[in-house]
């Protein structure tokens, strides 16, 4: 997982609230056997509308999503995070996230910043006034800057640390690699092996 310190990219306004994971990625895409390549599935039904924000030329290549409250509710599918990530999003800002979605996001390197409703309105106003304007998200400082608007966002210390260090769950465990290797060195010979010992 890539380390996240600061990121600058186009911010897209998703002016809806209670965007659930079925809207982020419809169930039919869950049949796939991969963990990547879900970019086509993101907001699949909304994207059929040419006027949908992510279809507008100004927002092509957007990497920061600024959404209404209660983002990521509904089914706990991890695919919702994969789809956002594969589409190119590095950050989602919203006044409220569903807990499971937020947990999944932190494990996959997607920053979820909680902002106030007032700041949400201010950002929406700024980015719709100048579509395609770039925003800078500073995870260290927990700030988002667009034009001369700078707002603070919330993210818990532990998730922030993981994202700054680029540690997914596996990366976290592998910080104990030496301990795993020591354990393996003292494992008894009788324990099962599926292959002849190499």
């Amino acid at each position: 997982m890539e380390k996240f310190t600061t990121h600058t990219g186009i911010a897209a306004p998703l002016q809806r609230s209670a965007v659930d994971t079925d809207q982020i990625i419809p169930a039919v895409y869950l049949k796939r056997v991969t963990k990547t390549g879900f970019d086509d599935a993101l907001f699949a039904s909304w994207r059929q509308d040419p006027d949908f924000v992510l279809n507008q030329p100004a927002y092509q290549g957007a990497s920061i999503l600024v959404a209404g409250p209660d983002f990521g509710t509904g089914s706990s599918r991890e695919h919702a995070v994969w789809a956002l990530r594969d589409f190119g999003f590095r950050v989602v800002l919203s006044p409220r996230f569903a807990d499971i979605f937020r947990g999944n996001a932190g494990k996959q390197g997607l920053v979820t910043g909680v902002i106030s409703e007032a700041d949400l309105e201010a950002i929406w106003a700024a980015i719709t006034a100048d579509p395609g304007i770039r925003m800078t998200v500073d995870l260290e400082a927990r700030t988002a800057t667009v034009g001369d608007l700078e707002i603070a966002f919330d993210i818990d210390d532990y998730t922030r640390w993981r994202l700054l260090e680029g540690l997914d769950d596996i990366g976290l465990t592998l910080r104990n690699e030496d301990k795993i290797a020591q354990f393996e060195a003292r494992r008894e010979a009788w324990r099962p092996r599926t292959l002849p010992v190499r």
Partner: peptide, 12 residues
């Protein structure tokens, strides 16, 4: 499934 990946990568 994410734990399956975890075990594959770390055996823990």
């Amino acid at each position: 499934t994410s734990e399956v990946e975890h075990v594959m990568a770390t055996q823990t």
